[in-house]
């Protein structure tokens, strides 16, 4: 190879590896508050009253104050043109953050998180089109994966709520998850990871319906 071709290639590879390393480092940092989120959110399964739940939500929401600036730093490191070169690095972490924000929103309002709300939580928007990337964003796949983590968590929440005599919750959860199921049914999913997650959704739906059945057959909820 001509020496300048060789140098160019070497420089390219070095720069690429450096960017990757830097991004990995930031993602590791981002992992800390994201994992920190799961701890308070786990408490919803032991919280008895609705007031307890709201206290948990309040605690969890505080973590986003730490998450946003790290995502911002990540965004600054990623050249938009090469977004897809590196987006596997933060995919899982971003899914977790989306999931936490969606769960908190559900606990507060029993509604699906809107893209606007998600942007407030994470500081970056979801990109719902296929246009060329011009800025850092949450990908549709990350968004769908994050949302798809809700049903299994909520199925568990339904079971534990009934245990804690909060008999009104399983009904709410059931309604919410069936709406979510209908939404996902509109998609023509390929045989990929989103599809796999979606396929397991029906088991969660069934689990929640079981709880609702058991509660209502005993006349425990109006």
């Amino acid at each position: 190879m001509e020496s300048n071709t060789l140098t160019n290639l070497q420089n390219y590879i070095t720069a690429d590896t450096e960017t990757r390393d830097k991004l990995r480092e930031v993602v590791r940092e981002l992992d800390v508050p994201c994992r920190g989120l799961t701890m308070p959110l786990n408490k919803i399964h032991v919280a008895k009253t609705d007031e307890d739940i709201q206290a948990v939500v309040k605690e969890a929401k505080e973590s986003f104050g730490a998450i946003r600036p790290i995502i911002q730093r990540l965004a600054e490191l990623v050249p938009p043109e090469r977004y897809y070169r590196y987006n596997d690095i933060w995919g899982r972490t971003m899914q977790q953050a989306v999931f936490a924000a969606a769960l908190i929103t559900y606990l507060e309002s029993h509604q699906m998180i809107t893209p606007e709300q998600l942007k407030e939580y994470l500081g970056v928007a979801v990109k719902f089109d296929n246009d060329h990337v011009t800025e850092f964003h949450i990908s549709v796949e990350e968004y769908l994966h994050g949302i798809l983590s809700l049903p299994s968590e909520l199925a568990r929440f339904a079971v534990n709520s009934a245990t804690h005599q909060a008999y009104h919750r399983p009904m709410q959860i059931s309604e919410f998850v069936s709406r979510l199921f209908l939404s996902f049914q509109q998609l023509n999913l390929k045989n990929d990871s989103v599809r796999k997650r979606f396929d397991s959704l029906k088991y969660d739906v069934k689990k929640i319906e079981d709880v609702v059945f058991n509660v209502s057959v005993r006349g425990l909820c109006q």
């Binding site: 509604q111 699906m112 296929n130 709406r179 939404s183 998609l187």
Partner: peptide
């Protein structure tokens, strides 16, 4: 209102994913 929005949003996601998969 949010239900209708969610319906529209998933329609958009479907179109986006279809386009991406086709390509």
């Amino acid at each position: 209102a949010t239900q209708a929005n969610s319906y529209e949003l998933f329609h958009q996601i479907r179109d986006t994913l279809d386009q991406h998969y086709d390509r």
